[in-house]
Nucleic acid binder design. Structure first.
Length: 253
DNA sequence: ATGGTTGTGCAACAA
């Protein structure tokens, strides 16, 4: 089974890229972030005709998350934190709880958005603990908007203290993972430097000035089923790409 | 270089 996450930066602008990705990577379940559309403009039929079940939590212009799956959803819960912004959707597929999250960008140090981001991390942690997901087959994936360790950024010295690599942000993601969530990519490849996001400005992708801010975290019970986790960098090379690329988790059936 | 790029939706904001 192949489960993926991708910040598409507008589903209506990225629909053709997503279709190529699903086909070429034989994806069973995909969590998307930054749909930038309300449900009424989401391209449901495009995914249904590819034989996916579709669950969307949209919002006008900003945010928005979705889960699509080749297997029926046993349960769906939009907006698990009951926030005004569309950032979370939970689906249960084949007995696995999959929580797809678009963590806040946060903005500058000390800003209102910065504190919102840190509080959001705390709320996600509390929600997971409260529902006892760590003792089940559980996946937390999405755009975390934080690079956890120095290996996860192109230049830890230059980026120290900048958005996505501040001490407080790194502590927040470390604290969340410390409850017992395993970073699938890092678990398999402890010393490999790969990125999932490159800024649109300044030729960042060409220079490989990137950060790994998109993750798939799994609970301990899924570890025996972990086959692979890879980052599909090629989608950043296409015309009009998202600034993020997909991350794929392969589980044994 | 107080820059640079993309998307929504039509000016300004968010990323």
């Amino acid at each position: 089974m192949r489960i993926a996450t991708w910040n598409v930066n507008s589903i209506r602008s990225r629909l053709e890229h997503v279709k190529i990705f699903l086909k070429d990577n034989n994806i069973d379940i995909l969590g998307m972030q930054e749909l930038k559309t309300e449900e009424k403009h989401f391209p449901f039929e495009d995914f249904k005709s590819l034989h996916y079940y579709v669950e969307v939590f949209g919002q006008k212009a900003y945010n928005g998350v979705a889960l699509i799956s080749r297997f029926q959803f046993e349960k769906v819960d939009r907006n698990v934190l009951v926030e005004s912004e569309a950032r979370t959707i939970l689906g249960v597929v084949r007995g696995i709880h999959i929580l797809n999250v678009y963590f806040p960008h946060g903005g500058e140090y000390g800003s209102e958005r910065f504190f919102y981001k840190l509080e959001f991390y705390q709320k996600i942690k509390n929600y997971i603990l409260k529902n006892d997901f760590l003792n089940t087959d559980f996946i937390l994936m999405g755009d975390f908007n934080v690079a956890k360790d120095p290996i996860d950024v192109w230049d830890p010295v230059a980026l120290n203290g900048t958005i996505g690599f501040m001490k407080e942000e790194r502590e927040a993601i470390t604290d969340l993972m410390s409850v017992g969530l395993i970073d699938a990519f890092r678990y398999l490849y402890p010393d490999v430097q790969e990125f999932t996001w490159w800024d649109y400005t300044g030729g960042s992708f060409r220079r490989n000035w990137g950060m790994r801010i998109d993750y798939i975290l799994i609970s301990k019970s899924l570890l025996p089923k972990l086959k692979n986790c890879y980052i599909e960098k090629t989608f950043r090379k296409l015309e009009k790409p998202s600034d993020h690329v997909p991350v794929v988790l392969e589980l044994l059936d």
